[in-house]
Nucleic acid binder design. Structure first.
Lengths: 188, 188
DNA sequence: TTTGGCATGTAATCCGTTACATGATTAG
DNA sequence: CTAATCATGTAACGGATTACATGCCAAA
């Protein structure tokens, strides 16, 4: 048996947030890819089947809608769906198994050239910088609107800031260490 | 098609590290669960088949060994395996899709009680504290032996320290925010 | 007209986990 | 004697990704 499905709960959560309009699968995907992009990810090939599954279980309800001339299927969470969402939110956080390819490669660093590791770290640094400035931008926008209106969004954003700042500092520090090393393999 | 297999490369990496004795599947599992436990994880049900697969491909070779009275199968990396390892180390780091259940639950925080979120955060804080002190312990041990002897292990450990310190600070900060909030749901 | 975004879906594939199964050895 | 650890495996299951397939609409 594989681990339990988590996709249903992102959907339920996104549809369940108070004051939300009904959303289509495509819109849910876009929401995931923007607001919570560095916390979660889903593929459309997973979203559509799960949306059907949730409809069959009566956790969401589907409505056909014509917007302009385009037609789409929008979903609304049902009371039963809200219940399911609540009990998931209350259940223990399931920790995901770590799988950090960058650090793993650094751990095996003695088996390759230092220049390779530097390249990996620089790429990581650049990616992390981009995420950090994205998060800082969001934080600034939230501050402009009142802080207390959406405290949970802010907590999420601040997690992104804290983690990427730390990762950035570690990357810079490690780059210095590596640059001070001889250019050859550590153990040729 | 699912994403490409990564298990072979942890095995190859662990067997490839210079100055390593041949290891059995069970020993590889133990190595993963200790030295790189917060960077990577594998199940035995995955390790044994992959070990066979690697043997069939000629990337590792298997030897039966009697240690004391117990018998085990130990594996050694072959030149072909070393090659494969090197080219993987040189290839671009594949970034894993984020899936952080804790932050996701906090993002949906308005749909549950603050007390629930506090419970989740406290559990996270405690887990993270444990990891941090584990890493600090390892760092101290490495410092006693010369620092320059195994720079890559130190970099790995320092990643663990940096990330868990940041996560810890964020958790404490968020806990304060939540404790200052009314005990009811944010949006009842 | 053609590129790109909106929109929904299915099929193939497979990585990895959990559970099951078995047995030897050692420490309490 | 019995629980834990060492040790190796197989089977079932399923979650999730990638690739494929299709079509509309708007803008450049």
């Amino acid at each position: 048996m594989a681990r339990t499905q988590r996709t249903p709960f992102v959907i339920l959560g996104l549809l369940g947030l108070s004051g939300r309009q009904p959303r289509s699968g495509y819109e849910i995907k876009k929401a995931i890819d923007t607001v919570i992009s560095h916390v979660w990810s889903e593929s459309l090939g997973q979203l559509y089947p799960v949306l059907k599954q949730l409809t069959a279980e009566g956790l969401v309800s589907a409505q056909d809608r014509k917007e302009g001339r385009r037609k789409k299927i929008v979903y609304t969470i049902t009371p039963k769906g809200k219940e399911r969402l609540h009990s998931w939110l209350e259940s223990q956080v399931e920790l995901s198994k770590p799988r950090d390819e960058l650090i793993l490669k650094l751990f095996f660093g003695s088996e390759t050239e230092v220049a390779v590791l530097i390249r990996h770290l620089e790429a990581h640094r650049d990616r992390t910088k981009a995420i950090l400035s994205q998060c800082l931008e969001w934080q600034k926008q939230k501050d402009r609107n009142s802080v207390r209106s959406r405290p949970f969004l802010l907590i999420t954003i601040r997690a992104g800031i804290a983690l990427s700042e730390a990762s950035l500092r570690w990357a810079e520090e490690s780059l210095e260490t590596l640059r001070a090393m001889p250019a050859r393999k550590a153990k040729p």
